[in-house]
């Protein structure tokens, strides 16, 4: 029994040591690159449209230090971003969080482009339909007098110019 419990204590101690080891591995100050990786995704809350990693103001330098401090405390990237949003509002994020009216940011452009494709498709069809019907019988007379359809119109123009000279 004793042996078992002492083994347990020993294991617990070893485990603790391991944990301490892991924790102390987190202790060194996070590097500038680690800080910038997060700062890059955040926008300076005071300057317009400047990512936090490149903003030269003192305030932004302090915010970067804050990120470093939070990283050192073991916060995850998401927790730090959430903290900034909570403190300074959604404007610190590079793109609006997809909720409420913000969905419009992501929906309007694709809808507009799809609508454009739809309009264009219908315009094409309405342009093409009469042309196809009308084209069939008289097409030999309407087609240009070219034997090779791949021949481009500017080669024709070159020849026109030759004839003019």
């Amino acid at each position: 029994m004793f042996k078992k419990s002492s083994l347990a204590i020993l294991l617990t101690l070893l485990f603790d040591l391991l944990v301490v080891g892991v924790v102390s591995a987190q202790q060194p100050t996070p590097s500038d690159d680690q800080v910038n990786a997060i700062a890059k995704q955040l926008y300076c809350p005071v300057c317009e449209n400047i990512p936090l990693d490149v903003c030269p103001t003192t305030a932004c330098a302090q915010w970067r230090e804050l990120i470093r401090q939070k990283l050192q405390e073991g916060w995850t990237e998401q927790q730090i971003k959430d903290y900034f949003v909570q403190q300074y509002g959604a404007r610190v994020l590079g793109t609006p969080p997809p909720k409420g009216i913000n969905w419009l940011v992501y929906l309007v452009p694709p809808v507009a482009i799809l609508a454009g494709i739809y309009v264009l498709y219908h315009a094409f069809r309405s342009w093409k339909r009469p042309a196809q019907q009308a084209d069939l019988p008289p097409s030999p007379s309407q087609a240009p007098a070219e034997t090779n359809p791949a021949q481009d119109e500017y080669i024709k123009r070159l020849e026109d110019e030759v004839r003019k000279r």
């Binding site: 926008y43 509002g89 959604a90 610190v92 994020l93 590079g94 609006p96 409420g100 913000n102 940011v105």
Partner: peptide, 15 residues
Amino acid sequence: AGVFTGQKVTVGPPY
């Protein structure tokens, strides 16, 4: 109010 929060947002390069 939950939809129209009136919150200022940034539409940045990723978009």
